[in-house]
């Protein structure tokens, strides 16, 4: 169920998210990224068992986290990860629900908890993603 507390930036759809289910700037977001079988990485990861690389889940969570933290002229970039766990493989046809929530803030940093789910099952978690602020390109 879509619950847009505040309108997500147009950039959400430009960054590879296929649906935005919840978005509250500075607080949290839930977005969906579909994983079609046409994904280029599947040819080599792996030839006999296509699996979405776990680091790409991490990148998606970080991308969504950066959009939640976005504050105009500056952008936020992943600079640290604590306690990341990959619990199940993600493969062709899966629809990954990405969830991030801000848990702490410093002058130039934000901490977020993150989770990825497929069909309601948790496939990956990060206890803490740290994003740091810098000038936008």
């Amino acid at each position: 169920m879509t619950d847009l507390t505040t309108a997500p930036p147009a950039a959400v759809s430009d960054r590879g998210f296929d649906r935005v289910l919840q978005f509250e700037a500075g607080s949290h977001a839930v977005a969906v990224r579909n994983v079609p079988g046409t994904h280029a990485w599947f040819a080599t990861h792996f030839p006999r068992r296509p699996v979405l690389p776990g680091v790409l889940l991490l990148e998606d969570l970080a991308e969504l986290a950066a959009l939640v933290c976005a504050d105009g002229a500056r952008e936020w970039r992943l600079s640290g990860v604590r306690t990341m766990r990959f619990r199940h493989f993600v493969g062709p046809g899966d629809q990954v629900e990405l969830r991030v929530r801000v848990t702490g803030a410093g002058a130039d940093s934000r901490d977020l908890r993150a989770e990825a789910r497929v069909d309601g099952r948790t496939v990956a978690t990060a206890r803490r993603l740290t994003l740091t602020r810098r000038e936008a390109p």
Binding site: V55, L58, E59, A62, L78, R134, E135
Partner: peptide
């Protein structure tokens, strides 16, 4: 990925190279 000083490698892919 675009950055303030030009293209840069995403964090996750540097980690993947190590993995």
């Amino acid at each position: 990925r675009p950055g303030p000083d030009g293209p840069e490698l995403p964090f996750g892919l540097a980690l993947e190279a190590l993995c």
